[in-house]
Amino acid sequence: MAAHAALSQYLISGLTTGSVYALTALGYCLIYNATKVVNFAQGDFLSLGGLLFYSLLSGLGLPLVPAFVLAVAGVALAGALMERLCLRPARSRDLMVLIFITVAASILARGLMKTVWGKQTLPLPSISPEIPLRFMGAAFTPQNLWVLGITLAAILGLKHFFDRTLTGKAMRAMAANPRAASLMGIDTAGLTTLSFALAGALGALAGILITPITSLSYDVGVLLGLKGFAAAVLGGYGSFAGAVAGGLILGLLESLCAGLLSSAYKDVLAFLVLLLVLFLRPSGILGVKEGRS
């Protein structure tokens, strides 16, 4: 393979996984901005999205589009329920306790998914038939395009939501100053639930898109979730633009590392980047500089 072909191959696979990291990182940001909680169940939203989509398609035999919509809605509901049932009733407002409530929720969710769907790998079909495509010497499938397209649509949708709608603006106000926002009559409790639902929906999208390429099982979201977390830190934790940038950069770095250096250490890279960012520039690429004391 010629050098430029190899490079465009890395580019395509890097952007594909990078998109999924970006979606995951956006989920972390949404919940962080609403509650300052790092949601360790974000990865489980990915698994659940893929698993629900699989069951709706193969189990119930639904057509593609309704199955897709229902799977995303289902995980959004799971996100909202997690906020309502686990975080809202918590007796402590200590962040550390709240963060570990998400850890416990994640353990519980993985246990439930293991019981319902079993431990085995499930075959999730791609969104459209696997026709090999070629572009600039790189081989890819329509699934790569679906990942890129749907991620782009989701990002534009979110941007529209936060810039143009009243709910989105209220959510930004709440992130900036929850107390002031609630004094202005903004329903912060409702918006917090909505943030979790949106984070669930984004996680579901990421899961539905990536699991046909990787594989689908009840714990597939664990590593993807942690890498999405690294991407969020890289971009600047809490920054939406940073989450997208961090996700794409991490995806590209990983694919270059796997291609040019060593695929054995591919999974380390995200966390090396995480440590380097924390050591050198803890506010991330696009985050607000508030890390320095």
Partner: peptide, 20 residues
């Protein structure tokens, strides 16, 4: 490097460190 920072950066760094 991370304990010099305000906020819970240690938890992120140690998480990354553990995986590495």
């Amino acid at each position: 490097p991370t304990l010099r920072l305000k906020g819970n950066y240690l938890v992120m760094a140690t998480l990354g460190f553990n995986i590495i």
